[in-house]
Write a protein that binds this DNA or RNA. Structure first.
Length: 476
DNA sequence: TGAAATGTTGGGGCG
DNA sequence: ACGCCCCAACATTTC
């Protein structure tokens, strides 16, 4: 029994605490921990630049917590696992499940193959509160609307797993030679990560710090900071949850605990339902695997998206001439993150004011976000575009000026990322094009030179979007 | 987790 | 004192 070796295949569960597969492995004997950088992933699932940066640091943190015994491999998981098993005479393989369509296909195949070879193979739920396959309506079909999904489908079920302690593991030394984290070459060759390095600490300890800070601040309930991009009112846990450096169960129970002590704290309640949205997007991707590329609502197949590279480029680089949009896009580029409120504003702007396909936004976010997550990214873009399940109606067009005035009253957020607008008074900070010439001159701003003129007229482009929507409805 | 257009109400100025 | 109008404030509808 003590000679038995179980391979724990680390994927997006880069933690030792509350790790069901690792617990199972540790109970069966010695454990060989391996991370495999999968080079066979399809193009649409290949990690973006920001995600790679995060993974690099997260693997370092994991390896350190394993006293350097993490085996790192790169290539085709099927081949590498087979080799690993034979080199080390392993009898079992465990992992925590993933839910992206290509992962499911890959894992199902590998599981079957290894079982045929006589191995003991088990997968576990380490990533979600309620797994997609266990939540269906009475008629057996999956939910398409969030509220009944969450209330009747999830909350009515038994409570999610209470977080597990980190197991006592006896790690086996590998006979297979692995790579160092650095040899995966995940870091950028040009140093675009200077700001990111200062802001983020990947790994479980960074996650715990974020969680503690959030609960502390949410408990000071005078603030309504969740919607204010200039304030750190959101938890910023998304990249940690994506890579599994903290489990959703750990976050869920930490919030529940805080909520018990402070039952009418609306922030905590809202945050719990945000976790519900995270579950919902995984659920949608599992039951409708094509949502990353295809409109969930196929009426949108007839939507007249424009083809306009110059506008797309202006959006990507934060040069649209609309301050809150540009601030958001620059925040993304510089920090690998964007405040949730601003994600909705820039998304609406791309899809409605610029009339560009949501898939262009999905791809850009995928490359730039540290928390890039196929489920959340696809479901959220379709939500913004109006083509998704339980989506925002297409005619709900955000006015970036009003959104700015509402959620960034003094323009602090805009000024942080658009320093060329620093001198503008709050009255014009969200619409410099409306400022009188003498004020612009006094602020040393020449529109079209120091800061772009808006690339679209907000009113006209809003009407154009509504017309396009009518046109689509007429076609179908 | 909208915005804009349209409708309704009621207080106050004023002849 | 009364009716009329204006318009802000709020509510409802439409996109």
């Amino acid at each position: 029994m003590t000679d038995r070796i179980t391979i724990h295949w680390f994927r997006n569960d880069l933690r030792l605490e509350d790790n069901p597969a690792l617990v199972a492995a540790s109970e069966a004997g010695r454990v060989l921990p391996v991370y495999i950088y999968d080079t066979t992933a399809p193009e649409s699932a290949k990690l973006g630049g920001a995600s790679k940066w995060w993974l690099h640091h997260s693997l370092h943190a994991l390896n350190a917590s394993l006293n350097g015994s993490l085996l790192i491999l790169k290539g085709d998981p099927e081949q590498l696992l087979k080799q690993l098993i034979s080199d080390n005479h392993a009898q079992a393989v465990v992992w925590n499940r993933g839910y992206e369509p290509w992962q499911i296909k890959r894992d199902t195949h590998i599981k079957q193959l290894l079982k045929e070879q006589g191995l003991d193979v088990h997968s576990h739920n380490g990533h979600l509160l309620w797994e997609p396959m266990s939540v269906v309506k009475k008629d057996g079909t999956p939910y398409k609307v969030f509220t009944p999904y969450y209330r009747k489908g999830c909350l009515a079920q038994p409570e999610p797993r209470f977080p597990l302690e980190a197991p006592n593991v006896e790690y086996a030394a590998s006979e297979t030679k692995g790579l160092t984290v650095d040899e995966l070459e995940l870091l950028p060759t040009i140093p675009w990560d200077t700001q990111i390095k200062l802001m983020w600490e990947p790994g479980p300890s960074g996650a715990k710090a974020k969680l503690a800070r959030y609960i502390q601040e949410a408990s000071d309930k005078y603030q309504d900071a969740r919607n204010l991009p200039a304030v750190k009112g959101t938890s910023q846990l998304s990249p940690y949850l994506h890579f599994g450096e903290i489990s959703v169960n750990q976050v869920w129970y930490a919030l529940k605990d805080a909520f018990t002590k402070d039952p009418d704290n609306a922030h905590l309640d809202t945050f719990l339902s945000e976790l519900g949205w995270r579950e919902f997007s995984h659920y949608l991707l599992y039951h409708w695997p094509s949502i990353q590329t295809d409109n969930f609502n196929n009426k949108f197949d007839a939507f007249p998206w424009r083809d306009d590279l110059a506008s797309l480029k202006a959006w990507q680089t934060g040069q649209t001439g609309v301050p809150i949009v540009d601030a958001g896009m620059r925040e993304l580029w510089q920090t690998g993150y964007m405040h949730n409120r601003v994600r909705m504003i820039v998304g609406s702007f791309l899809v409605k004011n610029l009339l560009l396909d949501w898939r262009a936004g999905e791809r850009w976010f995928w490359d730039c976000l540290l928390d890039a997550d196929m489920a959340a990214n696809s479901a959220s873009w379709q939500w913004v575009a109006g083509s998704g399940a339980d989506a925002a109606p297409y005619f709900r067009v955000f006015n970036p000026v009003l959104q700015g005035e509402k959620f960034d009253k003094q323009g602090d957020y805009v000024k942080r990322f658009c320093p060329e607008l620093t001198r503008l008074p709050p009255k014009y900070i969200h619409q410099p094009w409306a400022a009188p010439q003498d004020i612009l001159r006094a602020c040393q701003i020449t529109l079209g030179k120091d800061y772009p003129k808006p690339i679209v007229d907000l009113k006209q482009s809003r009407e154009r979007a509504l017309d396009a929507f009518q046109q689509m409805k007429a076609v179908s």
